[in-house]
Write a protein that binds this DNA or RNA. Structure first.
Lengths: 139, 139
DNA sequence: CTTTCTGCAAACGATTTGCAGCAGC
DNA sequence: GCTGCTGCAAATCGTTTGCAGAAAG
């Protein structure tokens, strides 16, 4: 953790510090509930702070189709660029790194897409859904 | 529409027929609410039938992070394999086709991933988020 | 008849929000 | 003191579910 700075408008309170510490310690994206628990803050405060940190670009919100998860934004994380592997059974989300080749191809394709459709691309998601090692056996 | 067959266990009622027709007519993934409206069925019945059709593999549910959308599964649709471009402002989802090169690379990567993590991959999502042509001007 | 499907209304659950008190400047 | 942060409880809203009657076979 150490020097995770809260840019500009955001005051670095004890709650936010605790949430960031929990996010930094985590080895996978965590739910607001998990974070609230391990940081010792009220659930509503966790949601509020995570939303603010996400708006400030410090935290990334991961939409899973089920319960959303949160992780440190890539620029503040140890882990480099990565995508998500989510288990449709237990909801656990783990990270994986794409090959540079794939990443290059994706960004080229995304640019092309923006040009063709006249839209502004803000982010892309490449997620994989399936059954994790634990859930696979029993199904 | 015509011969969109409902496989095995599923009775093809008027409601389901109407939903499938609406899906077939659509040029983009639609919400349950839109579908219920244009097919003239109760919202709860729309959700129930869409869930059943999705379980039967006839319909695909698209998780947007906002309101979920539905479309015909690829094997029953005119459109070939595609991905989604979703507007974070108005929620509209449009389809786009990836280059075959990208698709090839993705499936190779996904296989590798399954082998490495010991998980079973069921589907992959490559979605692009941003502002659509309509929403881009005013922001 | 029995089974499945329907619509309505009620329940659910993740997330958001209003509010009164508290903490920091 | 003003401002922003907190926790609680209540509201929101997409989605699901229980139920009694209708439809299909």
């Amino acid at each position: 953790m150490a020097s995770v700075l809260a840019p500009g408008e955001l005051r670095l309170t004890a709650n936010r510090r605790a949430l960031l510490a929990a996010l930094d310690k985590a080895t996978r994206p965590l739910t607001a509930d998990e974070l609230a628990g391990s940081a010792g803050v009220a659930l509503s405060s966790a949601y509020r702070n995570l939303a603010e940190l996400a708006a400030a670009g410090v935290v990334a919100r991961v939409s899973t189709g089920g319960i959303d998860c949160f992780e440190l934004a890539e620029q503040f994380s140890d882990h480099s660029h990565h995508h998500h592997l989510m288990c449709i059974e237990c909801g656990i989300v783990t990270d994986f790194a794409p090959s540079p080749q794939l990443e290059r191809l994706i960004s080229r394709e995304v640019e092309e897409l923006a040009a063709q459709h006249g839209c502004e691309v803000i982010s892309h998601v490449f997620d994989v859904r399936g059954l994790c090692r634990q859930c696979r056996p029993r199904r």
